[in-house]
């Protein structure tokens, strides 16, 4: 009997922790959409949403309520069950990946030894939601969009995997907490410097994986009318949207963890500043770094024109993969020769 009570107690604790991760995440997604419209708006000399609430701050909530009240259309030619399952297939891995993210030295839900491998596996599942949605809709545009999107996602996944391998070589561990700790010792010890080409490759393939501008041919409004989710309406569409933005935040957070020292303070080891900022909790640094990457996403969207599909494939296969292979070799030699100060 006591055993059962214990089980239930642990379960409730885990659920509380999960909601403590998910609710800020969902809020983050909502305000990322708002930030996107504001930032892109200002970059294009507009002011973005400003009607709902002060500075338009209630806009995301209004959007959610609107989408919730819209009719859910399930096309008559579609495969009904798969059509409904597809959004779930997209959102579940996008959220579950957050289970292993370390937010500060002791704040991590599941501190598993194969953390990075788990993240990689979860991100490789993202393609299912796309494929199933495109196929189940039984519409030409949705199907074309799904095929394009899936082929693009898997192409960039390889470059991303090789970039991960570089991080593993430098850190010697798959555990995300260890990877962060291995970067201790100030801004020059973070992995962005010894792994600079891999950092760039990771970021480019991260943007391409989330199908964001300038790699957003999958939605290509002018050619295939928003791609694989063209048949989705109301809340079902909102879930795809939610997953896309959750993935953006995830990619940014992983970039911060792997290359910018995660929750480590940037002033570590600097005489006066280090002490001055010692009180700042780790999670604040992680958030700050993540926000920088998110801003980069929006900045890129406002700046770059869209790639053509053949150019996307060429960039993925013929430029990013060779670059990673060369840098992995260099890195291997650096480790074998114990190059100081990183691999000493």
């Amino acid at each position: 009997m006591v055993e059962y009570v214990q089980y239930i107690e642990t379960l409730i604790w885990v659920l509380i922790k999960i909601f403590l991760i998910l609710i800020p995440l969902i809020l983050g997604v909502a305000y990322l959409m708002y930030a996107e419209r504001k930032v892109v708006g200002y970059m294009q000399c507009r002011i973005g949403p400003n009607r709902v609430g002060i500075w338009g701050l209630l806009q995301p909530i209004a959007d959610v309520i609107k989408l919730l009240c819209k009719e859910i259309i399930i096309p008559s030619v579609s495969s009904r069950y798969l059509f409904i399952i597809a959004p779930v297939l997209t959102i579940a891995p996008a959220l579950a990946a957050w289970a292993v993210i370390p937010f500060s030295p002791h704040l991590v839900l599941a501190n598993i030894n194969a953390g990075l491998l788990y993240l990689f596996a979860m991100s490789s599942l993202g393609v299912y939601g796309i494929l199933v949605a495109g196929w189940a809709s039984n519409s030409k545009y949705a199907f074309l969009g799904a095929m394009r999107s899936a082929a693009q996602t898997i192409s960039y996944e390889i470059a991303m995997g090789f970039a991960f391998v570089g991080v593993l070589m430098a850190s010697g561990s798959l555990n995300l907490q260890d990877i962060v700790l291995r970067q201790q010792g100030g801004i020059w010890h973070w992995f962005w410097l010894p792994l600079l080409p891999l950092f760039l490759v990771y970021w480019i393939s991260g943007v391409a994986e989330t199908n964001r501008a300038p790699f957003d041919v999958a939605e290509g409004e002018s050619e295939i009318v928003a791609g694989f989710h063209v048949e989705y309406s109301g809340i079902t569409f909102a879930i795809f949207f939610l997953a896309e933005y959750a993935n953006m935040i995830l990619v940014s957070t992983i970039a911060a963890l792997l290359f910018l020292g995660g929750w480590l303070s940037p002033f570590e080891g600097i005489p006066v500043l280090g002490h001055l900022f010692a009180w700042v909790p780790g999670i604040a640094w992680l958030l700050l770094k993540t926000c920088c990457f998110l801003f980069l996403y929006l900045w890129m969207r406002a700046t770059f024109p869209r790639y053509r599909y053949d150019q996307i494939m060429r960039l993925g296969w013929k430029i990013l993969i060779p670059v990673t292979l060369v840098w992995l070799t260099v890195l291997g030699l650096a480790i074998e020769f114990h190059l100081k100060p990183w691999f000493g």
């Binding site: 379960l11 885990v14 659920l15 922790k17 999960i18 909601f19 998910l22 779930v88 959102i91 579940a92 891995p93 996008a94 959220l95 579950a96 957050w98 289970a99 292993v100 839900l109 599941a110 598993i112 788990y118």
Partner: peptide, 10 residues
């Protein structure tokens, strides 16, 4: 925990 998280995600 991860399994529970996946469930909650769904």
């Amino acid at each position: 925990y991860i399994l529970i998280f996946l469930g909650i995600g769904a």
